[in-house]
């Protein structure tokens, strides 16, 4: 197979995803098939070809460094799953 169970678990870990045993097996099988297919790209000679990261030639879009309208604290916190005293609440980081 193109990708092992251990690699899928490693990548899931990097992406902060938990997986049970059966999902790991399914994903390993499906991703293996997809990656085998992607390997057809190795038939293409890309020596000296510049990669394209944007479809349209773009330069940096600059603007004047002036303050614009922005959300107030209530709006920013409006969708927070947990909040208190104008802050986002997260579980304890330091034990």
């Amino acid at each position: 197979m193109k990708i092992t169970k251990e690699e899928v678990m490693h990548v899931a870990n990097l992406a902060h995803l938990d997986m049970d045993e059966s999902s790991i097996d399914t994903f390993t099988f499906q991703l293996g098939k997809i990656l085998e297919y992607v390997d057809t790209l190795n038939r293409v000679d890309t020596e000296g070809v510049l990669p394209t990261y944007h479809a349209i030639a773009l330069t940096n879009a600059f603007r004047e460094d002036i303050q614009k309208d922005h959300f107030d604290k209530e709006q920013v916190l409006g969708n927070a799953p947990e909040k208190e005293d104008g802050s986002f609440i997260v579980p304890k980081v330091i034990q």
Binding site: V11, A15, F27, L41
Partner: peptide
């Protein structure tokens, strides 16, 4: 969504970036 996140994370991860993401971006140019 999880399948694509894993596929993308794999394609961008150390050791595979050149083989997948960069290669695909070069063929995109072609």
């Amino acid at each position: 969504v999880q399948r694509r996140i894993i596929l993308g994370t794999y394609a961008l991860s150390a050791g595979y970036y050149d083989a997948y993401y960069k290669k695909a971006s070069q063929v995109r140019t072609l």
